[in-house]
Design a protein around this nucleic acid. Sequence first.
DNA 1: CAAATTTTTGACCGATTGGACAAACGTTAG
DNA 2: CTAACGTTTGTCCAATCGGTCAAAAATTTG
Lengths: 211, 211
Amino acid sequence: MNTSMDAPRRTRIQQEKRELILEAALEVFSTHGFRGSTIDQIAEAAGMSKPNLLYYFRRKEDIHEALMQRLLDTWLAPLRELDDIGDPLTELRSYIRRKLEMARDFPRESRLFANEILQGAPRIMPLLAGELKTLVDEKAAVIKGWMRAGKIARTDPWHLIFSIWATTQHYADFDVQVRAVLGPNRGGDGRFEDAARFLEQLFLEGLKPKS
Amino acid sequence: MNTSMDAPRRTRIQQEKRELILEAALEVFSTHGFRGSTIDQIAEAAGMSKPNLLYYFRRKEDIHEALMQRLLDTWLAPLRELDDIGDPLTELRSYIRRKLEMARDFPRESRLFANEILQGAPRIMPLLAGELKTLVDEKAAVIKGWMRAGKIARTDPWHLIFSIWATTQHYADFDVQVRAVLGPNRGGDGRFEDAARFLEQLFLEGLKPKS
DNA sequence: CAAATTTTTGACCGATTGGACAAACGTTAG
DNA sequence: CTAACGTTTGTCCAATCGGTCAAAAATTTG
């Protein structure tokens, strides 16, 4: 009798069902927010009854927590990859490209994160001030090194990172507005390529050192 | 007996109380979203009983609708002011500055809007595809004229507007994250001036025509 | 096979939700 | 004063919420 889900020991069926639930919860939470989502909604999306769902996750908050935990890892992966080895401008350009690809391929994850932050990050505040701040500070130091070396224009590394986050995630979080404004023609599948071209020009020309 | 709130005829006390309710609702809706907010919360924030609130707004949705209606006007005002009369680069720079000031002075309005868009804009979709698209298309044409005249670099006007929205509203919608990452020192009141300086450099140097 | 264990479900519960309603209260005009 | 009207509130309601529980069903184990 192993009803405690805290233990890492899990059967094959438990892993599968938990995965199914998290997939459904991502869909529901990302579009309605935490309080706006109901367990019934998630259970129906996962194709199971509510008590059955609660057999795998005891509380609604446990689902959200598990979702956020795995989210942060994949979500910050592109920034972690920002390395000091290559050409600075190339590094930044590929970081922007990767972030934009994530906005295109994982819009639900982006909206889930945006929902949490919008409401004051009540559940992940410690992570922001801890793990996230450490990572950003570390990368800001790398960027500052590039500036001192004259490889890119001198500016604020932190706000540079913010602006990359903002512009790329905008195409996931505000996708509805983007498509509405662009209209049927320009708002089709090509909008991400247009965005990539524009952002590359905006950031690179703006960061180009004054030669 | 004038219990129908639809009619434009309103007493002085009705105007005052409706204003009080909308102010309280802005606070509540912007931090919890529509479904995450309760009428009781809004009523308490407005200092009145729930039935009394429902005397002025018959349904919860009516409050949200009234809030969104007045929001869009003030929210798009900076873009409406974008004119063809001045120097293009100066016009764009002051637009960015105004948008950033709105993010600083009216973060609740920004978050209310973000919440609505995040959830698929179920209540204002017609406005996005109608009024908003028209306005943006009109301003995009103005910007395109500047490009043809060689006043600013050639790029996509629509995505340029998106990037200005994204970068400025980021400081309202993601304020918690911004302050957490910047820390106590750099995350203080000066963060908006730092952001203004950074954004000015990012956009202007990137938009400068290749002379 | 049968026993033990895990998985699934129908029924149920207390709390909260948006909203209705009539009665009470306040204010103003005659 | 009093009648009429606008305002406020206590009480109530049906629906929905997150979550429990015992028992059935399915699966694994011996």
